[in-house]
Amino acid sequence: MINTINLTRIFRTDEIETTALKSVNLNINQGEFVAIMGPSGCGKSTLLNILGLLDSPTSGEFNFLGNNVAGYNEKKRAKLRKNNVGFVFQSFNLIDQLSVFENVELPLIYLKMSPNKRKKLVNEALEYMQISHRSKHYPNQLSGGQQQRVAVARAVVSKPSLILADEPTGNLDSVHGNEVMNLLTELNKNGTTIIMVTHSQRDAGYSDRVIHLFDGEILSENINK
């Protein structure tokens, strides 16, 4: 499903050039649950962003569902994104001015679905995340755990084939953190490919495979199960 060859990403600002990723080669199959780990500054977030089509590599090949998307512009990436990828962020990234329902509905609006269809899918997602009773509330009225559940609901509402999770339990206490990880596992069992970045050993334990990054390069890969 996803395949990179010599993927490189260099950031340039003023006088400083930082190589975040150095010739990374990896392969992720459909249905896998992969964790990417490494110390801070190792480039894992950068890798995740590229895999999630939020960023473009400086050089190298990036095959996404059979196409080399390395040179895609934002417009093309956006299109690919909205049809295939769901995002779960560490800081939830919900829109404060929108209600829970409206937040979850967001991806569907940009997929130009009819209001009826949207309503159906949103309610399904809220049910699934067990947060229907809060659908009219606003993010600042919810606890961290609840917010993340909303964020996950948003990520799955369009039934994407790939979910990207960036430190999904980062801002949660242990109980809620476990909840989220269980959810991801369940989604994965139902066929969704999951790529997760984490620095928590514990979270990594839920995945099939762990890729270790260090200073922009792949150090090792472990199989979990």
Binding site: A78, K82, L94, I95, D96, Q97, P107, Y110, L111, R154
Partner: peptide, 13 residues
């Protein structure tokens, strides 16, 4: 910008 970013991530034209 954050809101705009989130919307764009999800494909807003």
């Amino acid at each position: 910008s954050k809101e705009i970013g989130i919307r764009k991530v999800h494909g807003a034209p």
